[in-house]
Design a protein around this nucleic acid. Structure first.
Lengths: 136, 136
DNA sequence: TTATTAGTCTATTAAATTAGTAGAGTAATT
DNA sequence: AATTACTCTACTAATTTAATAGACTAATAA
């Protein structure tokens, strides 16, 4: 399961993808539109800005906006940067790998199956982009 | 990520699959063989017994064993019964569905992508069985 | 029938993670 | 100068996770 934080991030990005090109969107507009607690959303949007997906403008007419065209950012990247590993176990993670203390990874059956699962998941998440999050 | 509990369950089942047909295996043998805290493992094996995957014998010559041939139990079932949902968000889960309060599921972009991801994951996990967990 | 083996059950706990809140501060615009 | 709106630090409550302790029960064999 994705954390609530990651789910909110995806919903917020879907909204920003939908209004890409129309200037900044208010935090409050996203919070209301997507039913996200506003103070929690602030943290999430700051994170998304820090990792280079969003940028923001202060003052009147301010808000958040996508730094790149929605199709340029894939969902695997977003999930990893906000929510962490996509793999189901650490010893099979490409970006958050941790050595398995309990087994020999070369022969471990669990490892093998989980690597296959990771590949199947990534095949989807690496192809889908923020543009796919737009409602409609 | 799967919980440690689910990971331990899969490892234990892999060992039991490997010795299927050779009679019961001691909890302590599984704990040592797979590096699992024994008291935690007891809880896990009891759970697996309750859901009908394992059975056990008490007393000398006792232990745990698979109730069915390893190929009869697929991994999606195990993960769901021990670890919960496989889907990344509740509104897309087949077995642990929860209505999304924040959107119209029919038009939600996040929902659509997550359903695709779930399908890709299930395609693997429903085909793989306990037999695939055997080390080698 | 007693000793031994080995699974069962109840309860508790420590640590980590998650989800959310409060409030003061800073920057941009008009 | 006033207003708007993002930024930052700090905190807290709730939940989940990962165990641990110890008493109990059932089966087997000498």
């Amino acid at each position: 399961m994705l954390s609530k934080k990651t789910q909110y991030a995806l919903k917020a990005l879907g909204m920003l993808a939908g209004s890409y090109g129309n200037g900044p969107v208010l935090i409050s507009a996203i919070a209301e539109g997507k039913n996200i607690p506003i103070k929690f959303l602030e943290i999430i949007l700051l994170d998304l800005k820090r990792v280079g997906i969003l940028d923001s403008k202060k003052g009147k007419g301010g808000g958040y906006y996508l730094l790149q065209h929605p199709k340029k950012t894939n969902l695997a990247t977003v999930i990893r940067q906000i929510g962490g590993p996509i793999a189901l176990i650490p010893c099979v993670s490409l970006n958050f790998y941790e050595k398995c203390e309990d087994c020999d990874e070369a022969t471990c059956g669990v490892n093998k199956v989980m690597a296959q699962t990771r590949d199947a998941t990534l095949k989807i998440l690496e192809k889908r982009t923020l543009a796919d999050l737009i409602d409609g």
